[in-house]
């Protein structure tokens, strides 16, 4: 057990899967000698050699095409897309090729690819270096989308993702990379890819969140606890699939729900959660579904982020509104 950052937890997981399975390969832009622009692959090329951890030419579609082909020939690729905005260059390989592979061949050929990529705002980066594109990918059948909210989950979910025989988009939150530390067990452990986590138990209202917003929701829960309001926080962990059973069970108890996402509100994960509740569990509620999401503008430039991204303040306001309905 040691205190580790989100980045260190990811490096830990990569070290373990490289050690465990000789078929795993890590590649992408600057992941070798440089250890990745965020140092998530630090030391891995040195330890496992250039055959297992290597730099590629600068082309995202090429990187993921390489992954697809390696998967077809018995390898287990873990490509990195340096920033999620760049994944748009490779949408065909993700959605058009890898996500369809098992379906196409009825399992005779598969794409056991885990695509790692940093996403999310709040670090004042250049354009296209901060984004929340999970809404595009979470609606893709055949692809799992994983969004850990803390170092412990990041390690366990990443190991599960690599071990899964289907393609997984593993989204790493930029803001969380160095801003939090957890006690992380040293060896291997896994976190399931289809189970939400009850991050905080409570009775009065449920907050459903994922990624960095889970930590914002926990801050709100702390704040409201001082006023004797008991908030349950559900961390989705994976946005495809979404574990609706855990959500339904929670709102049966609390009768109130606020759904939080860092991404724009339109056609996304929060909308999917709201629709699932409306369809199958609406009678558990005694107030409207509350939603907190980013405005539906284009993702802002660096200086606009701080006012644009919803954080604890906006969540608390919405929770109070729903509580007082």
């Amino acid at each position: 057990m040691a205190k580790k950052t989100y980045i260190q937890a990811i490096t830990d997981a990569l070290d373990i899967v490289l050690e465990d399975d000789p078929k795993t390969l890590i590649f992408g832009e600057d992941v070798g000698k440089n250890g990745g622009v965020f140092r998530t692959t630090q030391g891995l090329q040195e330890k496992y050699g250039e055959d297992r951890v290597f730099d590629t030419p600068l082309a995202e579609s090429g990187i993921l095409g390489l992954a697809t082909g390696l998967g077809l020939t018995g390898w287990r690729p873990i490509p990195e897309i340096q920033f999620m905005g760049f994944s748009l260059e490779a949408v065909d390989q993700i959605i058009g090729q890898e996500a369809r592979m098992r379906f196409r061949f009825d399992g005779l050929k598969t794409a056991p690819v885990t695509i790692r990529t940093p996403y999310g705002g709040g670090t004042h980066t250049a354009e296209m270096h901060a984004d929340n594109l999970e809404n595009i990918f979470a609606s893709t059948p055949g692809l799992r989308v994983v969004m850990p909210s803390n170092p412990y989950d990041a390690k366990g979910l990443l190991i599960s993702s690599v071990e899964n025989n289907d393609p997984v988009l593993f989204m790493e939150n930029l803001k969380l990379y160095r801003s939090m530390k957890d006690d992380i067990p040293d060896g291997k452990y896994t976190v399931p890819l289809d189970k939400a986590n009850v991050a905080r138990e409570g009775n009065d209202i449920t907050i459903v969140a994922y990624g960095a917003e889970v930590n914002e929701a926990l801050k709100v829960a702390d704040e409201l606890a001082k006023k004797n309001i008991s908030v349950e926080v559900i961390d989705l962990r994976t946005v495809s699939p979404i574990d609706t059973d855990t959500i339904f069970k929670s709102i049966e108890k609390t009768h109130k729900v606020v759904i939080v996402q860092e991404a724009q509100k339109i056609a996304g994960v929060g909308a999917q959660v709201a629709s699932a509740i409306a369809e199958d569990a609406v009678l558990s509620l005694d107030a409207p579904i509350g939603r907190v999401a980013a405005p539906n503008s284009v993702y802002p430039f660096a200086l606009g982020e701080d006012t644009w991204i919803p954080r604890a303040k906006e969540i608390e306001e919405k929770v109070n509104e729903i509580l007082n309905y």
Partner: peptide, 11 residues
Amino acid sequence: YDEAAGVAMGL
């Protein structure tokens, strides 16, 4: 063509 590079590397 992208995938062929990967298949070739795998082989």
